Amino acid sequence: MPFAPALTVDGLVHVSVTVALIVLVAVVLRFVVNRVIGHVAAGAGVPGMLSLLRRRRGVSDADRIEAFGSARRAQRARTVGSVIRNAATILIFGTASMMVLSQFGVNLAPVLASAGVLGLAIGFGAQNLVKDFLSGIFMLLEDQYGVGDHVDLGDAVGTIERVGLRTTTVRDVAGMVWYVRNGTIERVGNGSQDHAVAVVDVPLALDTDITRAAATAEQAATAGIDEYGHGPDVLRKPQVLGVESLSSSGMTLRLTAMTKPGRQWAVQRSMTEHVVAALRADDVVLAA
Score class of each variant (00 low, 15 high):
residue 126 A to Y: 06
residue 154 G to W: 10
residue 144 Q to M: 03
residue 111 V to D: 01
residue 164 G to P: 05
residue 121 A to D: 12
residue 86 N to S: 15
residue 116 G to R: 02
residue 114 S to V: 12
residue 116 G to V: 02
residue 122 I to H: 13
residue 97 S to H: 03
residue 101 L to H: 11
residue 82 S to Q: 15
residue 106 V to T: 11
residue 127 Q to A: 13
residue 114 S to I: 08
residue 70 S to D: 07
residue 96 A to Y: 00
residue 115 A to N: 14
residue 110 P to N: 03
residue 102 S to T: 12
residue 77 A to K: 12
residue 110 P to G: 03
residue 130 V to F: 12
residue 131 K to N: 11
residue 143 D to R: 04
residue 106 V to L: 08
residue 166 R to K: 14
residue 147 V to D: 01
residue 102 S to V: 07
residue 75 Q to A: 15
residue 117 V to G: 05
residue 137 I to T: 01
residue 73 R to K: 09
residue 168 T to E: 05
residue 91 L to R: 03
residue 152 D to L: 00
residue 140 L to K: 08
residue 160 I to S: 02
residue 100 V to E: 05
residue 131 K to F: 07
residue 101 L to T: 04
residue 153 L to I: 04
residue 158 G to A: 05
residue 123 G to S: 04
residue 158 G to R: 02
residue 149 D to P: 01
residue 152 D to F: 00
residue 76 R to D: 06
residue 113 A to V: 10
residue 99 M to C: 13
residue 70 S to G: 05
residue 122 I to P: 04
residue 162 R to N: 14
residue 158 G to N: 00
residue 91 L to Q: 05
residue 135 S to H: 10
residue 101 L to P: 04
residue 84 I to P: 00
residue 93 F to P: 02
residue 147 V to S: 02
residue 158 G to F: 02
residue 126 A to F: 13
residue 159 T to R: 12
residue 156 A to M: 11
residue 145 Y to H: 07
residue 129 L to W: 12
residue 128 N to S: 15
residue 110 P to D: 06
residue 72 R to I: 11
residue 130 V to D: 14
residue 144 Q to S: 06
residue 150 H to Q: 12
residue 156 A to G: 04
residue 141 L to H: 10
residue 152 D to Y: 00
residue 119 G to I: 04
residue 155 D to T: 12
residue 80 V to Q: 08
residue 128 N to G: 13
residue 105 G to R: 00
residue 147 V to K: 06
residue 135 S to D: 05
residue 82 S to Y: 14
residue 111 V to E: 01
residue 146 G to C: 10
residue 107 N to Q: 14
residue 162 R to L: 06
residue 141 L to F: 10
residue 85 R to G: 15
residue 73 R to D: 11
residue 107 N to P: 09
residue 147 V to P: 04
residue 121 A to Q: 07
residue 130 V to K: 11
residue 109 A to E: 09
residue 82 S to L: 15
residue 149 D to C: 01
residue 108 L to P: 01
residue 167 T to W: 08
residue 143 D to I: 02
residue 147 V to I: 05
residue 115 A to K: 08
residue 132 D to V: 08
residue 73 R to P: 06
residue 152 D to I: 01
residue 91 L to E: 03
residue 89 T to D: 05
residue 102 S to D: 13
residue 90 I to W: 10
residue 139 M to G: 11
residue 77 A to P: 05
residue 87 A to L: 15
residue 145 Y to L: 06
residue 166 R to C: 10
residue 84 I to V: 14
residue 139 M to Q: 14
residue 112 L to W: 07
residue 102 S to E: 12
residue 137 I to H: 08
residue 162 R to E: 14
residue 99 M to Y: 10
residue 71 A to W: 06
residue 153 L to R: 03
residue 142 E to K: 04
residue 83 V to H: 13
residue 86 N to Q: 13
residue 147 V to T: 04
residue 131 K to T: 12
residue 143 D to L: 01
residue 97 S to T: 14
residue 157 V to H: 08
residue 139 M to V: 12
residue 104 F to K: 07
